[in-house]
Every structure is written in structure tokens, then in C-alpha cells.
Design a protein around this nucleic acid. Structure first.
Length: 267
DNA sequence: TTCCAGGCGTATC
DNA sequence: GATACGCATGGA
């Protein structure tokens, strides 16, 4: 990791990283673009303002933060240990993926909190991104931050009406119930093989194959988890009717993000 | 106004 | 196991 301290900020040199493509691409819903090339958001309850200082050289300014926070939080959250240049070289054996990686080469998979990912993607189903952000915004405003499972445990479908999340409220309540009772344990699920983990998550009402895969990919950093939504169905029909190419092995989810962004912005 | 959204539960065959 | 349909809400 290439960084230096600059007053109260950190200057980070990081190739293969674009703020729009990573923080505003539908994998996380709490980042707000507050100025050109500037985002503000949270990992759990840690706030960060990050801006692109020099796009050509891939230099970013992490405002009002410390070396300790970079090493303890943002290094993991922004997945700085992964060499995306190497991954993109692997993916580029495939013609379509080569174009997808060239189209948006600054995508990274954020390592989000598992509960935030599970609840966010429950909210995301049959919904559009602006409204998903609105519901999650009301959620965090109400609790003064992203609510923990414990904070949500007294809530009911009726008491969550302020979210205006529609039929999804009862699904949140069921997830909280199963996690509070111990019937379900996210850290335990993270240790399971992919198919078993997906099956366990799907015991929650409102969690189907896609939401489970999103939880595994974005909330547990299972890079082989491959969420198939309406966009990926179109991509698979169009480009991969006979299955994914071998070059994505173990990183199907990472490849999915490039393909998702590519087909979503080119059709 | 009408359509549709990073799906899923349920009913039916 | 496959397929059809309804679902809360609001952005476009």
C-alpha cells in the first residue's frame, strides 16, 4: 500500500480504483457524492470523506482520518489488498470481459459489514437504486447510524412503517428474529462452503438466491458468489449461453460486477 | 398516467 | 422443477 500522511489527511496512491464505479454502482447504498470526485459515507459507524486528488496517477485524499483508521478499517473496506490489475488481466482472456474491464476498470468489491449487506439487499429486491437509498437513508437517520441487529430486535412490521419499505419490512423483521434467536449466525455462515451458506441465508423470508449471493459477495467477501439479477440474466443470455469462461474461476462475483456495470450502461 | 425496479413467496401444474 | 402472478412504493 502506497500512502503518506498530509496534515490531517492521508494521500493514497491506488490504481484500479474509481470512486463513481466503486461507491455508486449498486453494491453499497450509503455513499453520497457531495462534490465532483468526492464521496462521503460510512463503514459501520466510521465516517470517511474521500476525493480523487489526481485521477491520472490514481491518488486519493482520505480527509480528516488517521493512519490507524486506514490500517484498521479502510484498507479492508476498500479491498486494498487485492490486485485488481492482475484480476483484470486474467478476465481479459475473455472477449466480453475484456471490454467490460476496459469500460469500467475502477470497480472494486467493497468488504461491507455482513448485516448491512444482508439487510440492504433484502430492501433492494424489486426496487430501484434511488428508492433503496431513500429507505436506507430513513433507516440510518432514525437510529443515528446503521442499526445493529440488537437495535432492530424490538421492531415489528408495523413499527417499521416509517421506512416506507413496502412488503420488505416483514422480511427485515424475520431476518432480525432469526439472527437474534441464534437460529442464524452470520459469522458461522461466512465459514460455510458457498452453496451451504446460500442455503442457510435463504431460510430467511424474503431472501432468495440473489439476495443470498449479494450478501455473500458484498458482506462476506466470497468472490466466487455470483448474484444473478435481471441484468445478469440478460448478460448471461447475450454473452454466456453456455456458461461463464474458465478465467473467472474463484472470482465469479468480481467478474459479475464488471459485467453488471457494462450491460447496465450499454443497453 | 403508466411502467418498472440489483426478487421472492405462493399457487398451480 | 417449471411457470405465472401479486406485491408496496415511488422514480422516471
Amino acid at each position: 500500500m502506497d500512502y503518506r500522511i498530509d496534515g490531517g489527511d492521508i494521500l493514497l496512491r491506488q490504481p484500479d480504483f474509481d470512486l463513481d464505479e466503486t461507491l455508486d454502482c449498486g453494491q453499497a447504498f450509503r455513499w453520497v457524492k457531495t462534490a465532483p470526485d468526492t464521496y462521503e459515507g460510512y463503514y459501520l459507524n466510521s465516517f470517511l470523506r474521500i476525493s480523487a486528488e489526481d485521477k491520472r496517477d490514481g491518488v486519493f485524499r482520505l480527509h480528516d482520518t488517521t493512519e490507524q483508521d486506514l490500517l484498521d478499517k479502510w484498507y479492508d473496506y476498500l479491498d486494498l489488498s487485492t490486485d485488481y490489475g492482475e484480476l483484470k488481466r486474467r478476465f481479459s482472456e475473455d472477449g466480453t470481459l475484456s471490454k467490460a474491464c476496459a469500460f469500467a476498470g475502477g470497480i472494486r468489491i467493497l468488504r461491507q459489514d455482513s448485516w448491512e449487506a444482508l439487510s440492504s439487499f433484502i430492501i433492494s429486491q424489486n426496487n430501484n437504486i434511488p428508492r433503496i437509498k431513500g429507505i436506507i437513508g430513513r433507516l440510518t437517520e432514525h437510529y443515528g447510524g446503521y442499526p445493529t441487529i440488537e437495535q432492530l430486535s424490538p421492531e415489528t412490521e408495523e413499527s417499521l412503517a416509517f421506512l416506507r419499505s413496502g412488503f420488505r419490512a416483514k422480511y427485515l423483521v424475520d431476518a432480525v428474529s432469526k439472527l437474534t434467536s441464534g437460529e442464524l449466525d452470520l459469522s458461522g455462515i461466512a465459514a460455510l462452503p458457498l452453496a451451504d451458506a446460500q442455503k442457510a441465508l435463504m431460510t430467511v423470508k424474503g431472501v432468495g438466491p440473489k439476495v443470498a449471493m449479494c450478501t455473500l459477495l458484498f458482506g462476506m467477501h466470497k468472490t466466487d458468489a455470483f448474484p444473478v439479477d435481471v441484468w445478469m440474466k440478460r448478460a448471461l443470455e447475450k454473452w454466456y449461453p453456455n456458461g461463464l469462461p474458465d478465467c473467472v474461476k474463484d472470482f465469479e462475483g468480481t467478474a459479475q460486477q464488471y459485467l453488471f456495470h457494462y450491460i447496465r450502461n450499454n443497453s
